[in-house]
């Protein structure tokens, strides 16, 4: 006991011991040390001050939003949460199935052909064919609306054709002077599907870029 007292008296009290002393649960030695040690006395006073402040703060009601509740605070949350992940999973599965169906219907035959040529070391094909093969199915599906033959359209684009139905009002029509001698793009029935294809070609990483387009238009490059 003596040894313990002397060791306590030599060393400053831990924060935990100070808390115990504050609540009257410290040992006699700890209490004595607190009275004799300037540093521990200072820390003890600080602890008491803090606890007084905390006590005062908590004695008053929380003034604002953090602890106040009114009728609108009892907000129904999004109810049972189990259905949410299930619904999300179902939506993903349905979306994937729809995309897959369209992809299989529209692109698979052409893609198979291209793949076959590649395997037999056949003629090199323009990058946009490959692009079509690898393009996102949603875009393919959008481009492949009824009465639209993508390969014809792409061949024309390769040859430098410009689309009819250009959006720019100053360049409307398919005048020869505007096309600068390029072959006119086949007109698609039923609307301006070129935009779909054009958008597809511009997609990054699919090989049908501005450079391709203008190279074809002006007869430059391969």
């Amino acid at each position: 006991m003596k040894a313990k007292m002397s060791s306590v008296n030599r060393q400053c009290l831990s924060d935990e011991s100070l808390v115990a002393v504050m609540y009257g649960e410290g040992s006699t030695a700890e209490d004595e040390h607190r009275l004799s040690c300037i540093e521990c006395a200072r820390r003890f006073r600080r602890l008491e001050q803090d606890m007084t402040l905390i006590g005062n703060a908590l004695s008053e009601p929380a003034v604002s939003r953090l602890a106040r509740r009114d009728s609108s605070r009892r907000v129904r949350t999004a109810a049972p949460r189990l259905w949410q992940p299930l619904a999300a999973a179902a939506a993903v599965v349905i979306g994937f199935a729809m995309v897959w169906t369209q992809f299989a219907d529209v692109v698979q035959p052409q893609g198979t052909k291209v793949a076959g040529e590649a395997a037999t070391g056949g003629p090199s094909r323009p990058p946009r064919e490959i692009a079509l093969k690898g393009a996102p199915a949603t875009r393919i599906a959008r481009a492949a609306l009824p009465e639209f033959d993508a390969s014809v359209y792409l061949d024309a684009a390769l040859g430098g054709a410009l689309p009819c139905g250009w959006d720019d009002p100053l360049e409307s029509g398919c005048g020869a002077e505007r096309l600068r001698g390029a072959v006119s793009m086949p007109v698609l029935s039923g609307g301006d599907h070129y935009d779909d294809l054009y958008g597809l070609g511009f997609a990054e990483g699919y090989g049908f870029s501005d450079a391709d387009y203008f190279a074809g238009l002006f007869g430059v490059g391969g």
Partner: peptide
């Protein structure tokens, strides 16, 4: 557990 949720609201007393 399921329906209690705190909301931040303007409080004039603040």
């Amino acid at each position: 557990k399921t329906q209690y949720r705190r909301t931040d609201e303007f409080d004039e007393s603040f």
